[in-house]
Nucleic acid binder design. Structure first.
Length: 258
DNA sequence: CCCTATGTTCCCAA
DNA sequence: CTTGGGAACATAGG
């Protein structure tokens, strides 16, 4: 579920609530999530985000890397109460952080060695159009698939890929190598605007996304194509189509996305 | 009951 | 190396 804006929302909210706080207890409710040990007495020294991964750095320099995948959520509660689908909990003096994840895809690992980074990295931190073009010009895969490739850019998933390509008026099926540099620049601009706005909205609650405090985001009210199959395009009045691309539902307007 | 859908990513075969 | 499909899993809806 959570893409860059959702994970960034969690990162910011976690910074407000657990930075410098001591871990007084923790528990694994579903062993599939991974192994946790040595957390007692540690404090959270920083909370970082790498693409869609959330990283909590401890005062002994270990890093806890959480991948929420499809349905993973984090929930802060002042009164410790275990909710269905809880996978692990980390308790602090003033409350408890729970990972809720019905589909059980989320993973949680210690890492000290930096894992491989995306070539371009965070799409909000650099101007990446020319670097992306350097890759895309040699690839025949659909431009949408490349935009979602975490080894290339970190953090763009299915919802925002659909929205970004609509805003840039690019057909998601276009082979990446056929997208001109000036069109990539439109994608970069749309990406920056949309991701920033989505962060301000605390993410997209089109299904079960909730922020750290259990509240819905607001970007679902801003969506222009995602989940709008059969409705009219807000730019040109054409009819929004839904196709299946690389196993993902893909929404676009065939009339104005060329 | 059956089939399809869902925000992700890893693994594998062509 | 690139690409696309299936699996991992749970739940909802037609």
């Amino acid at each position: 579920m959570p893409e860059l804006p959702e994970v960034e929302t969690l990162r910011r909210q976690l910074c407000e609530i657990v930075l410098g706080e001591e871990i007084v207890d923790f528990g694994i409710h579903d062993a599939r999530i991974g192994v946790m040990r040595g957390l007692h007495g540690r404090t959270i020294s920083s909370v970082l985000r790498h693409g869609k991964a959330l990283v909590m750095k401890l005062d002994d320099n270990t890093e806890l890397l959480l991948q929420l995948r499809m349905t993973g959520r984090l929930l802060w509660q002042e009164n410790h109460h275990v909710i269905p689908h809880t996978r692990f909990v980390i308790s602090f003096p003033h409350g408890t952080l729970s990972c809720i994840d019905p589909r059980r895809f989320a993973t949680f690992v210690f890492h000290k060695n930096r894992s491989p980074q995306a070539i371009i990295g965070d799409p909000l931190k650099t101007r990446w159009a020319s670097a992306f073009y350097g890759i895309s010009c040699a690839r025949r895969t659909p431009v949408k698939a490349l935009l979602m490739d975490q080894r290339v850019i970190a953090g763009i998933g299915n919802i925002y890929a659909c929205e970004i390509l609509h805003a840039a008026a690019i057909n998601p099926m276009r082979p990446a190598c056929n997208v001109r540099l000036e069109e990539i620049e439109l994608i970069e601009k749309a990406g920056r605007d949309i991701l920033k706005k989505a962060i301000e909205c605390r993410g997209t609650s089109v299904s079960d996304w909730r922020d750290l405090f259990g509240l819905c985001g607001e970007y679902q009210d801003e969506l222009k194509v995602y989940k709008r199959e059969g409705l009219s395009c807000m730019r040109c009045g054409g009819t929004i189509c839904r196709i299946r691309m690389n196993g993902r539902g893909t929404y676009f307007c065939p009339h104005c996305q060329k």
